[in-house]
Computed example of a mutant assay.
Amino acid sequence: MSESKKVVVITGAAGFLGSHLCDRFIKEGYKVIGIDNLITGDLKNIEHLFKLEDFEFYNHDISLFINIPGRVDYILNFASPASPIDYLKIPIQTLKVGSLGVHNCLGLAKAKNARILVASTSEVYGDPEVHPQKETYWGHVNPVGPRGVYDEAKRFQEAITMAYHTFHGLEVRIARIFNTYGPRMRLNDGRVIPAFMGQALRGEDLTIFGDGTQTRSFCFVDDLIEGLYRLLLSDYTGPVNIGNPQEISLNEFAEEILKLTGKNVKVSYKPLPVDDPKQRQPDITLAREVLGWEPKVERAEGLQKTYEYFQTLSQEELYKEVRIFN
């Protein structure tokens, strides 16, 4: 490995987004150090990188002190449960990784004089009263509701990141990530696309919580990774929405999934969970202006690639997480 290569640390490296980030930075010629405690991540997402000289992996919980010897140029903190099923099942760990974990990452960045990008989320807007959501909107969040463990962990993460920037002069970047999908998502993790596709593959009715009029905006993972890469290397320190502004209702989206899969199943409805957002649509004006970024992949193309990935899963994988979480 050349000593001139820049070193990037990626936490949550074995997760959906983290693994794609590892791929991108390896492709760009960086040395990548991945960290994950594998609570929700899966080594199969990064096992193809193990043979590479420029990839290292640490099985470690970032809620504990992080020790990385040698040079570090960039840190991308993506260590956190991100699906409702996960953070409702492990609420304390979710709060710890969003507080102690990000504190440790910021401390590492300070010690190494490294730039850090933290993965925030559209959930900082809560169930929004402003639509579409701009970075200047402060949100509508219930801190003691069931989703508060995730929402408030991410809001704290933004606050402490900016505190390190203003007090210590640390170079920081904050990405507010909206609904993202693509290969390597876990089936039935509580998010819309894998839930719908998993149900279709098993021949089950698609489940919509609420009346289906609530909206989401789905960004394909390749587009998101490009936005994150540009944000890290930009000069902008404030939060930036990264997502696809093309909004669709869940009723309309379920019809798209039924058409894509060709499955003869129905749509069933269940009560809307507490504090579930009724609308999700990013205003990406800022991303267009400061990053020159906007999504390129059409939803039909992205969904086709995602469905093809899920079709490659074994029967054991197809049913495994249903047994765990039901």
Rank of each mutant, 00 (worst) to 15 (best):
S2P: 15
E3P: 12
V9Y: 07
V9K: 14
A14D: 13
A14K: 12
F16L: 11
L17C: 15
L17N: 14
C22L: 10
R24G: 12
I26G: 01
D36V: 02
I39Q: 02
T40M: 04
I46K: 05
H48V: 03
L49R: 13
F50L: 06
L52T: 14
E53G: 15
F57K: 07
F57G: 06
S63K: 09
L64H: 14
F65L: 15
I68H: 06
I68Q: 08
Y74T: 15
I75H: 04
L76G: 07
L76F: 05
L76W: 05
N77K: 10
N77G: 11
F78K: 14
A82R: 08
Y87T: 06
Q93S: 08
T94C: 00
L95D: 15
K96H: 05
G98C: 06
L100F: 15
G101E: 01
V102R: 06
K110L: 03
R115S: 11
R115P: 07
I116L: 11
L117S: 09
A119Y: 12
S120P: 04
E123N: 08
G126I: 05
D127L: 14
E129M: 11
V130E: 12
Q133K: 00
K134R: 11
E135A: 06
E135N: 06
T136R: 11
G139Q: 12
G139E: 09
G139N: 05
R147P: 06
D151K: 10
A153V: 10
F156M: 01
Q157E: 13
T161V: 07
M162E: 12
M162F: 14
M162T: 14
T166C: 09
I174C: 03
A175E: 03
I177S: 02
R186D: 10
F196S: 07
M197F: 04
G198S: 07
I208N: 00
F209A: 08
R216W: 11
S217V: 12
F220R: 02
D222R: 09
D223N: 07
D223H: 13
I225Q: 01
E226F: 13
G227V: 02
G227Q: 05
L228Q: 05
L228V: 13
L233I: 15
L233K: 14
Y236N: 00
G238F: 14
I242T: 03
G243K: 00
Q246K: 05
E247D: 02
E247W: 05
E247I: 12
S249H: 00
S249F: 03
S249E: 02
F253E: 01
K263E: 12
N264E: 08
K266I: 03
K270C: 04
P271G: 02
Q281Y: 03
P282E: 02
L286M: 01
R288I: 06
G292H: 03
W293P: 07
V297A: 13
V297R: 09
R299W: 09
A300N: 07
A300S: 15
A300R: 11
A300F: 15
E301D: 13
G302N: 08
T306E: 02
S314W: 15
L318Y: 15
E321T: 13
N326L: 14
